[in-house]
């Protein structure tokens, strides 16, 4: 892929990711401090389209820019998002390269990523808020919630993957159409 095309696509994906994150910020949060994580649609798509490095870059750009706008830079939500996001990118990248398209499909990858993300966010929350240990009682709820959002993200990425391969003319390493 040419360099310019790659840069533009990455910037565009980062921009879309910011927009998804911001729109999500307007929605009421079901569990305090935790988020739907719909912007991980872009993270997963970038992971399939480019690879871990680019996905991580998009994710970091998205987190910093949107936190600046929302006014949550260095707030608890920021760290939950950042910590959970790092783990989720490496986790999904690892799953992809180990399974190499076998076993789990895109939806499976997305769901397991979201689930792990939720778990990591809870652990970070526990470390940051020793006094609010009762939020652990919300763990089961947020885990099930993560399965649901992971499912939605996975389905969206499933279609994006197909569209990307047909319209943008790239060949997926793991999930060719």
């Amino acid at each position: 892929m040419e360099k310019e095309r790659k840069i533009v696509t990455i910037s565009l994906l980062a921009g879309i990711s910011v927009v998804i994150y911001l729109i999500e910020s307007f929605l009421p949060s079901p569990v305090p401090w935790l988020r739907y994580g719909f912007s991980h649609i872009i993270t997963l798509f970038a992971l399939l389209f480019f690879g871990p490095k680019e996905a991580l870059l998009i994710f970091i750009v998205r987190t910093v820019i949107s936190s600046l706008i929302v006014g949550r830079l260095f707030s608890p939500t920021f760290f939950f998002g950042l910590g959970g996001g790092f783990v989720v990118v490496f986790f999904m990248a690892g799953l992809l390269s180990i399974l190499d398209g076998r076993g789990l499909g895109i939806v499976g990858i997305s769901v397991s990523g979201a689930w792990v993300n939720s778990l990591v966010q809870m652990l970070i929350a526990a470390m940051l808020f020793a006094r609010h240990r009762e939020i652990f009682l919300l763990l089961p709820v947020s885990l099930i919630f993560a399965v649901a959002t992971g499912l939605i993200n996975g389905i969206v990425v499933y279609y994006l993957n197909g569209y990307g391969q047909r319209a943008l003319g790239y060949k997926s390493r793991y999930f060719p159409v």
Partner: peptide
């Protein structure tokens, strides 16, 4: 041109800008 889908930029970029400005 290289992006092939020219319309992506044309339609998505304004949306990105509007949403970011509104959010700020």
């Amino acid at each position: 041109k290289a992006l092939k889908a020219k319309s992506i930029l044309k339609y998505i970029l304004p949306v990105i800008i509007v949403v970011i400005l509104f959010s700020i």
